[in-house]
Design a protein around this nucleic acid. Structure first.
Lengths: 200, 200
DNA sequence: TCTCTATAGATACGAATCGTATCTTGCTGT
DNA sequence: ACAGCAAGATACGATTCGTATCTATAGAGA
């Protein structure tokens, strides 16, 4: 019965592996994913998987990456507040695809290089998106001309990430708080060159 | 030879388990810790461990908890900036005890309840510490009278955590940036009731 | 001092997974 | 048509998991 199957190559095989991984992921959680299980589910064998991935984290990350679908798009909603909220909501929605447990698991098992490859990738995208938003806000007159440090630019995304990992689920309220209590006030202050008044 | 050993009870046994866990942790990393390995190292048996811990994360977390030694102490260095930096440095130092990989691993395998028990515990402490610092700063005249949301109060610790997990190691520069680029400006602005100018 | 009880500690177990080696056989580009 | 690359099957020893069973010992209470 297994014999009857015609042999698959790169594309079809990869797709089978990805969907098998995703199915295992939602059926058994991150902890329940194994090379053996995925091989079984994808009707292939362990060596095939080991040729592609060095460990579970890589395998899962690759599968997840396929679902990331569309890019986060820089919105133009008319205010800095609305734009940032829109970005955070988009990111939040993308991450809602899986339980936090999954992301924690991946992070927990990733080696350093894998981890910061992933982070650099999203970091670069986010940096660009936020750049556009801030530029627009500046043109609109919402902000002063002061340059903002990278850390500040990416701050809301770091907070969102923190919340996604440690909080249970991120709702609209949380996002609004990040924007209203932290980001907008901070960015306004800094861009007007106040805020570091005394030292340095 | 194993026979010669006299039987240990609660205290001595727990200590043996803790040190065995810590040794395994530094020898083999979080991934390398196993019930079997710890049992071997502590000269005890798996059932003894399974009576105490439901999973590896619990075991490791318990062992780590024993090393947390002294509390973070609210400093009085004469400026908000210096006080916050001192707290962050203390926390950073405590976490430097183990590689980031260890914390990522624990987080990755913790179930939700374990995780937010742990976070609530440190959250409460941190909240109190930061409260003292901010109060002092206010008395000193560095801040206005406005109340700060919990999220803002704990912000630098969230950022530090984020950095500890995703960055490679946290140096003095990073800490200074968190304080100078983010926390102090933000807290000043908010406490003076500026910053939310237009909406809400 | 003696008994009682909880549990340390040893051992063994089936099941599952790990990571790798080997072999055959079908696919694909030239 | 042919050569070579990789899919897929199978098997392997090693390791760990989580649990069950048994014993003997430490410490509490009488």
């Amino acid at each position: 019965m297994t014999k009857a199957r015609t042999r698959r190559r790169a594309d079809a095989l990869m797709e089978a592996i990805h969907t098998a991984t995703l199915l295992e992921l939602s059926d058994r959680g991150y902890t329940g994913v194994s090379f053996e299980g995925v091989a079984r589910r994808a009707q292939t064998s362990k060596p095939v998987l080991y040729r592609r991935y060095r460990n579970r984290a890589e395998m899962v990350l690759d599968a997840i990456g396929q679902t990331a679908a569309q890019q986060v798009v820089a919105p133009h909603k008319g205010s800095l507040r609305a734009d940032v909220m829109s970005v955070l909501e988009q990111v939040n929605q993308q991450f809602s695809r899986f339980d936090a447990e999954v992301y924690r698991g991946v992070i927990g098992e990733s080696d350093d290089s894998l981890l910061d490859d992933a982070l650099n990738a999203v970091g670069a995208l986010n940096s660009q998106t936020m750049g556009v938003i801030l530029e627009t806000a500046r043109a609109r007159g919402e902000l002063g001309q002061g340059q903002l440090p990278e850390r500040v630019v990416l701050l809301p995304l770091a907070l969102l990430r923190h919340e996604l990992l440690f909080g249970h689920s991120v709702d609209a309220r949380t996002i609004a708080d990040i924007v209203d209590q932290v980001y907008v006030p901070l960015v306004r202050t800094l861009s007007r060159g106040e805020g570091s008044g005394d030292r340095l």
